[in-house]
Simulated assay, not measured.
Amino acid sequence: MSTTERRREPPPIDPDFYGWFGTLTDEESETRLKVRRLMETVVAPVVNDCWQREAFPRQVIDEIRTLDLLDGWYRDEPGPPPVARAVISMELARVDPGTASFFGVHAGLCMGSIALCGSDAQKAEWLPPLRRWERIGAFGLTEPEVGSGTAGGLTMRCRRDGDEWVLDGQKKWIGNAPFADVVVIWARGEEPGAVHGFLVRTENPSYQVEKITGKIAQRTVQSGLITLEGCRVPESDRLPGANTFADVGRILRMGRAGVAWQAVGCAMGAYEAAVKYARERQQFGRPIGGFQLIQQKLVVMLGNITAMLGIALRVTRMQEDGTQRDEHSALAKQFCAAKCRETVALARDLMGGNGILLDYGAARLFADAEAIYSYEGTNEMTTLIVGRAITGLSAFV
């Protein structure tokens, strides 16, 4: 090897090996790069400290407000621009999957519930301040004893009492719940098959929330255990378009593809940290990136990300043109979450002992990927959704 070859500038660290980002529109690209700059300058310097303290980087709310990311969301269309929303989730998760979860709960699940199932009055009251981040939203579906079985086993109950509804039960793992202004609560009604959605204002005296601590993944997410005992909610705060679990499914269908993009971003962040480390870490007199086994790990990681980007972008374009079905978003979530888990593990492994330290960029993403793998449809549940589409046979029970 000549001196010139040894001194050659290394290529840029680019996880988009097939140029998927080149297919984005100018507006989508601009949105992606705006969010990347925000995360690199505002969140990246503080995220390790926040993660250790189980604290959310609240300064991101003020900064994200200046970008007007939600300005056109849920106005003329029932949902946000699919690819624009997707690349936001990806860039947030590239630095901090917890911030991506915060965004998805607020802008996707909460705002989406109001936009798809709310009355005109509810939309007028809540969507503008939620767009401007003056109010923060949450989404309460999962329960302490009911996770994957929510379609048939909600234990939160609601009953009509004059002009009010009375809610009783608990919700668990509810992101943003400790500091939200409104939580969309889903409860089983008294009639067979009835499932209703409610806008529960957190100043309601019967709203009680306990922050969940001791997590090993997405520690920046403020997750809550919500308890409602005899919680009275006016009829005007019931979502009139939410009457069965199928209505919940419409909202989850939007969010599941977004979680696939969180997986892409998380994997990208870990890959970029691994390449940087492989170039800088010296062993046996040279960078470890010059060893065959290290390059093999990096190539597997890059292949995973390339495939993840392709499937995530395609399913999101299908959402745009109206051809996306449940099984499409389920496959995207199942595949991307699984490949993310593999990719972050390779990044952590490549760094050896340093891989378990927050300072090197892989450890936190390695841990956070476990939450991505589990929420908004576990690997098993998303697999069975796709399996049913393939065979025509249900294997859920």
Rank of each mutant, 00 (worst) to 15 (best):
D163N: 12
D161A: 11
P97K: 05
R135W: 14
I114K: 14
A124C: 04
F139L: 03
M90D: 11
I88W: 02
R159A: 09
A100C: 07
A107C: 13
S148K: 14
F102N: 01
A121M: 07
G147D: 06
T155N: 12
R132T: 10
E134H: 15
L109S: 13
W126V: 00
P144R: 15
A86K: 06
L116G: 04
D120C: 04
E134C: 06
C110W: 14
D96N: 11
R85M: 11
V146A: 12
E143R: 08
V105R: 04
S148Q: 14
D96V: 05
S89R: 07
E143M: 10
A138L: 06
G79P: 01
M111K: 02
A138G: 13
S148L: 09
L116W: 07
L109R: 06
L130T: 05
L154C: 07
S148V: 09
W133P: 11
V83T: 11
I114F: 14
L154F: 12
G162C: 02
G152S: 09
G153A: 03
P82W: 11
P97S: 07
G108V: 08
C158D: 02
S119R: 12
T155K: 15
S148F: 15
S113Q: 04
A84W: 03
S119L: 06
W126H: 09
S89A: 10
I136S: 00
D76Y: 08
E143F: 15
I114H: 05
G147L: 10
A151H: 13
